[in-house]
């Protein structure tokens, strides 16, 4: 696998979604190739950053109450 190929699958490598053989192959490449290794580190950190900043927004309590009521009303209607 060349650098181009590795760069296209870095995300999937970081997701842990590649099979073992590919995983080993890419790990080896990232250890040996400083440029690809650097990109993998950058992408990993960017993703961590995005995940941390996009904290989940919980549904408002009053909405949950309203939703439950609507569902119950529907169960009587149907």
């Amino acid at each position: 696998m060349g650098c181009e190929d590795v760069r296209r699958v870095i995300y999937f490598f970081l997701d842990g979604s590649l099979n073992d053989a590919k995983l080993r192959e890419i790990s080896r490449h990232l250890d040996d190739c400083p440029d690809c290794g650097m990109r993998a580190r950058i992408q990993k950190r960017l993703r961590q950053f995005i995940r941390r900043r996009l904290t989940p927004v919980a549904a408002p309590e009053r909405f949950k109450v309203r939703l439950s009521r609507s569902l119950r009303a529907l169960s009587y209607e149907l």
Partner: peptide, 11 residues
């Protein structure tokens, strides 16, 4: 084009 890279997903 991307499938040429044979994405082999573990699961």
């Amino acid at each position: 084009e991307e499938e040429d890279f044979e994405f082999e997903v573990a699961d």
